[in-house]
Design a binder for these strands. Structure first.
Lengths: 231, 231
DNA sequence: AATCGTATTATGGCCTACCAAATACTGTAG
DNA sequence: CTACAGTATTTGGTAGGCCATAATACGATT
């Protein structure tokens, strides 16, 4: 977060990731992309074996994921992959709407052409990913679209919050984007955001961003309630 | 966060807090109320001695606080108490404005008299605390005012986010409320929120909530920039 | 005396091993 | 078939040790 930015150019890029961080990423990955399913128990010693690290590391990783909301800890029973209920998911989408709306408004009010250019680049990357049926790419590029929205107006904290919340609904995201017509409507809605920003229309940008999230939320709700009874 | 709410009434309030949780609260407390100052190093083995727990527990606690943003981890140097720069504080206030504004609007749109009653109770508690010069009470009751705002419309996730962010600026909060005239203006602004909610004026409630946070932010900024050069 | 290596220390990162207590499982006696 | 005792599993927590790195102190060399 903080630090001397001017040194960044010369600083040797050391991948000095600690074992802990590597393990954290691995487990988070495993949860996010469904290798561990919601409700699965995460037995410490099993994880040790699978990751090839000690309990110390595994425990710290579990603690971290717990505070991220990705794992829940049943007292005396141990950690499980957090289930996300429909109510919580809706709230997360709502928060994203509020924050992304705020960011979009700020972008519009700044009125800088670079922002528009950067957003359009992300947007066309999304369209390409849809065309190539590259769903992982859609997710990545959608993230970078929103990251641009936040970081271009220096809202790193808000971006962090959105990011944190997003991992919890990640598998929902990957289901919503596969929905019929989402490949058309999604980019169209995002395009409206960009248009409003280009016009310098803060109110419109905010509304467009909120609409986009609301649409995603509606799809997610439909997907979730259609799938819950099946299990 | 999740869990069977209907059992909550009967469940015996077990203090079955794990040692880890106790230690976590202690250290967080210590940071929030200034026993550990920003920039202070948090040496694992020292903390073990002070808390009377093992390194495992201390490390898990540090990890947790790190993900809360209260502790920063310098590579190869270890954890320190996070410094909050003015820019970050402003962003936190801004996010609170967005979320509390959202909650206020929802409260207004719901139009339930119980909400108004609960808010007024908190508000008068705040006034009493100010009158008695009980600053800790002001903080507590202000928190519960906002908690009401969020939980009366079942926005537990958003409340969690606000709470998480708030601990990071806690000492700022305790400085802003001591400011001249804050004892008058603060409650007056919050009263406007309640009034708008009573009228069912969503837009007004949102605006009033955002104004209140904005005022706090302005004071915090003044306090911070007045204090930074002094150090 | 200034500088350049070299020990020492402090500390984090990581590991193994151990114990106690709670929980889940299992097999047997009545 | 049930009740109960015993056993395995697993978490929560402790103890202590090893290694790598960074900083500091110290000594040697020019």
């Amino acid at each position: 977060m903080s630090g001397a930015l001017k040194d960044a150019a010369i600083r040797v890029e050391r991948p000095a990731k600690t074992l802990r961080e590597l393990a954290l990423d691995k487990v988070r990955e495993a949860i996010v992309n469904g290798y561990f399913r919601p409700g699965d128990r995460l037995v410490e010693r099993d994880l040790c074996a699978q990751l090839g690290v000690s309990r110390t590391v595994v425990r710290e990783v579990l603690r971290h994921l717990e505070s991220e909301g990705l794992v829940a800890n049943l007292p005396n029973k141990g950690p499980i992959v957090a289930q996300l209920d429909i109510e919580e998911a809706k709230q997360i989408y709502e928060i994203r709407g509020a924050l992304e709306g705020m960011a979009a408004r700020l972008c519009a009010e700044r009125g800088s052409p670079e922002i528009v250019a950067a957003l359009e680049e992300s947007l066309s990357a999304i369209r390409n990913s849809y065309r190539d049926n590259d769903m992982a790419g859609v997710l990545t590029n959608t993230s970078s679209f929103y990251q641009t929205l936040f970081t271009m107006v220096d809202r790193h904290v808000a971006w962090g919050v959105v990011n944190l919340l997003t991992v919890r609904i990640n598998h929902l995201r990957s289901m919503t984007i596969k929905t019929e017509r989402r490949g058309i409507e999604g980019p169209a809605q995002m395009s409206k955001i960009v248009d409003a920003i280009r016009r310098g229309d803060g109110e419109g940008a905010q509304q467009a961003a909120m609409d986009h999230v609301a649409a995603a939320s509606a799809i997610a709700e439909a997907v979730l309630s259609a799938q819950k009874p099946a299990e």
